[in-house]
Nucleic acid binder design. Sequence first.
DNA 1: ACAACACTTCAGCATGGACTTAACTATCAT
DNA 2: ATGATAGTTAAGTCCATGCTGAAGTGTTGT
Lengths: 225, 225
Amino acid sequence: MEDQFIKTAALIGDPTRALIMWTLLDGKAFTATELSIAVNTSPQNISMHLAKLLDAGLLVVEKQGRHKYYRFSNKDVAYAIEALASLIPKVNPQKSKPEMHSPIKHCRTCYDHLAGKIGVALAESLLEQKIILDLDHKFEVTPEGIKWFSDFGINLEDLKKQRRLFLKPCLDWSERKNHIAGSVGASLLDKMITEDWLRRTKDSRAIQITGKGEKELLKYFKIVI
Amino acid sequence: MEDQFIKTAALIGDPTRALIMWTLLDGKAFTATELSIAVNTSPQNISMHLAKLLDAGLLVVEKQGRHKYYRFSNKDVAYAIEALASLIPKVNPQKSKPEMHSPIKHCRTCYDHLAGKIGVALAESLLEQKIILDLDHKFEVTPEGIKWFSDFGINLEDLKKQRRLFLKPCLDWSERKNHIAGSVGASLLDKMITEDWLRRTKDSRAIQITGKGEKELLKYFKIVI
DNA sequence: ACAACACTTCAGCATGGACTTAACTATCAT
DNA sequence: ATGATAGTTAAGTCCATGCTGAAGTGTTGT
């Protein structure tokens, strides 16, 4: 029993692996490369560490093409990491923000597309309006969808020419549902920011919703803030 | 923020420190030497590790004479350790006991005296019956108490001749209250075992209460099992 | 006063495991 | 097919950090 505990503790005790867990706590499922960037180490190294975490059952993997998406295997893992984080010695206790996690979990960017509650709700709305379809974990734009994006001010043909993935589902940990990644997800976020529906906050990946955004999100996607 | 998390994780990630935390989770406050025995390492080494845990605010110390009693600084620490323990990969899930901690937390020996719920209740009963007094964290036997112990079959004069501490309070983590240690605590436990009120279990520090014990504990100390 | 005990500090050592370099497989794009 | 990208595997290096031995302080008991 106790030797099992020691192994588990040592697993999370390593700086690199601790950073991996910390990163995954923030939200979505990450690819190995994304994690290697996030924790600032080599791909080989990340691969080794992920294998250990995987072996211990703390993470699970979902393979999508040549990518592998890593995320917590269950909510107990997230709880444990959060419990550990709660032990961080408090400096300037009067300056600490009342709710540390909530703004990020509620509405944040996932690298360059929209995740969190809003991101998930947006994806659901697009699916419901038949603007996109979910074909076995692959998103596709419908003929009506092409017109809709055009009306919204996004030229899908331009996006397809880019060298990056066009449209893909991206699992969100905190919401347990897919949201929209790829160039389509990125340009949706981009458009909403240029229209001043949303604003980036300086230091974090969290996003603020403007008054205008609140109205427009309700109108276009029936999203209630 | 994340570097703070890394430090905290690394703190618990070391095998020896993990064992310390695991041991402290079990119940009472331990002395440095007790811990060095429990985790099977040298006193110097324990001292160094305890200093680190202390510095990080995970533990607190209470000095009593030449002893130093270490325990968790607050319940969040216990929660975090338990959350970590919950991540231990389950082998033979059908064989796992329904409630791992409860028997130990409920009634266990603290080396050779009685701790846990029963130990605390016993101490409270003795205090309430004015058999012992709590004088600023020091227990003392009253004149009536001397007679009571004699009737109970314990000769306090013999105990005082022993080379060990006679009577001292011993903080119990799980109950947050004092129970009785020292030779008095030990002989109370001893007497109850020879009278077959209690029985030792083979492998653990947990104690079983017999049917006779259940009645007698109620009669003598108004303890309801 | 003395010895025994509880605990700490500081030196040097030693080892485990993280990281690197390198080579390999698999998938995707053109 | 070819190159680019995502990820893994293997062997070897190296450094951080835990551990030991020796010596110290402070407390207890006789």
